[in-house]
């Protein structure tokens, strides 16, 4: 019914970032693989983030162990960084949404938070492996892990909230507010758990500076992970936008 070119303002997809995405994916995979190989073959095992001497954690006596499990660190930290960067993007898009009220930013924010959740889950899994193998306990209320647990819960709540509001614009506004709150909450949470000395749990994580080799390795894996996250983001964005396009076209035809 609507004349060609005038009315159908369809959700666009497939601009330059989409063309970059496959390249980013390949680069990400290569970088991550290189990083892993570096972690296992090149970086000497150091006690950067483990217990100095012997300490009692939970019920297990933990001593300075230079196990292979330490290599988890080279995976754990980059995913943690990536998830936080994804959250920053999510909060940024939420802010843009609240200012402009454009549905596009709501979609962006939602997908950024999906990526956040994915990487937080990976962070939790690797962190869990770390505590288990390095410290011999299943869970430790260590500041970083606690922060990520809280963050994960807020992000899960974000998606539950999205599921329980029907009206699209209201859903977008509510979830944008929650995303911003999550973004503010995470650093506070880290500071609070970090700065308050806990009488029950020893501070296990010492500030052992990273050796240049470690730093390089972490940087390579982090760069790879960021590329992967970006490619995932674009792929998902494209998929959602195409679905929205189909919906919009259906509606046009229905007229």
């Amino acid at each position: 019914m609507a004349p060609e070119g005038k009315s159908p303002r369809l959700p666009e997809a497939g601009q330059w970032p989409d063309r970059v995405a496959p390249a980013a994916l390949v680069a990400g995979i290569v970088l991550t693989t290189v990083g892993f190989l570096m972690a296992f073959l090149w970086v000497p095992p150091v006690g950067g983030a483990s217990v100095g001497g012997a300490e009692l954690i939970g019920d297990a006596m933990v001593s300075q162990k230079l196990l292979l499990s330490q290599k988890i660190f080279y995976f754990h930290m980059p995913v943690a960084i990536t998830s936080f960067i994804a959250l920053v993007f999510g909060a940024w898009y939420s802010l843009r949404f609240l200012r402009t009220r454009e549905a596009r930013y709501d979609t962006c924010a939602r997908i950024a938070l999906e990526i956040t959740l994915l990487f937080i889950a990976l962070t939790m899994i690797t962190g869990e492996m770390w505590t288990r193998f390095e410290w011999g306990v299943w869970w430790s209320w260590e500041p970083r892990l606690t922060t990520y647990l809280v963050l994960m819960l807020v992000v899960i709540a974000y998606f539950v909230l999205r599921g329980s509001v029907d009206e699209p614009e209201r859903r977008a506004a509510f979830s944008a507010v929650v995303a911003i709150i999550a973004f503010i909450d995470a650093p506070i949470c880290f500071m609070v758990t970090r700065l308050i000395p806990s009488s029950i749990h020893p501070v296990v994580l010492r500030e052992g500076g990273m050796s240049p080799e470690m730093g390089l390795c972490v940087a390579v894996v982090a760069a790879g992970m960021l590329c992967v996250a970006f490619a995932l983001y674009r792929a998902r964005f494209r998929q959602v936008r195409l679905a929205q396009r189909v919906e919009a076209l259906k509606e046009e035809l229905g007229d």
């Binding site: 809280v150 963050l151 807020v154 539950v160 909230l161 509001v165």
Partner: peptide, 20 residues
Amino acid sequence: STRGKDVMLALLFVPVVFPL
């Protein structure tokens, strides 16, 4: 104004208020 508001509030409130 959401469905299942009681649970929803707890779900949001507890993690957000965690640091405090």
